[in-house]
Amino acid sequence: MKRQVPLLITLFVGTLLIVSVFVPPLEGMQENSTLFFDIIAVFAFFLGGGNLIRIHLTKVARKKGDWEYSLVTLFGFLLMLSSGLFKIGNPGDIAAAVDTPGSWFQTIFFYMMSPLNSTMYALLAFFVASASYRAFRAKNREATILLVSAFIILLGQTPFGTMLTSWMPDKFSVLEIPNMAVWVMSSPNLAGQRAILIGIGLGVVGMSLRIILGIERTYLGEDKG
């Protein structure tokens, strides 16, 4: 029951979805299973939310290290959840979108979540800058190619790059930095991306087969009896 049933479920669902591509009456299965996946994902969100409350409440109750921050997490979670689930401050009725302008949900998203989110990613600009300092050294041929390619792309996006080579005659227009950036993206970059994508595609197909056939079982975790 603990291992065989999950393996059978995986085998059945995976095989059915692959077969459905070749059997026209089963074509709707693909669309339905995507929806099934989304529905179960929402239950997973609820599981995650429940887990988050449990972990942070335990931390607060036992006064573990940094427990004060758990209160902040719980506050943020309950504030956003109640604003969203109960549509607090939503100017529309129950059928209105949860993020209708003017609702608490949209306000908290706009003034708290969005700045936090974009600043968190913007923070990476500094770390990327420090990483580039270390990586961008033309130590060998490969590193030089990487450096030149990144430089062309970066310069190609800026007015300075356009200004640098704007004097080029039409006959040599591919050597203008913005055009060169476009060329790098649409030619050698495309070739590299494609080679990687083909590799990923083969990897996913192989892994999917291993999972469906029950060879790969790590997702079931350890068997405790």
Partner: peptide
Amino acid sequence: HLYVGISAGYWMSQGFWSTI
């Protein structure tokens, strides 16, 4: 910590209203 809490609440609410 505030970001973690708000994000969890955001995705739960969105999932509930859009999918359920």
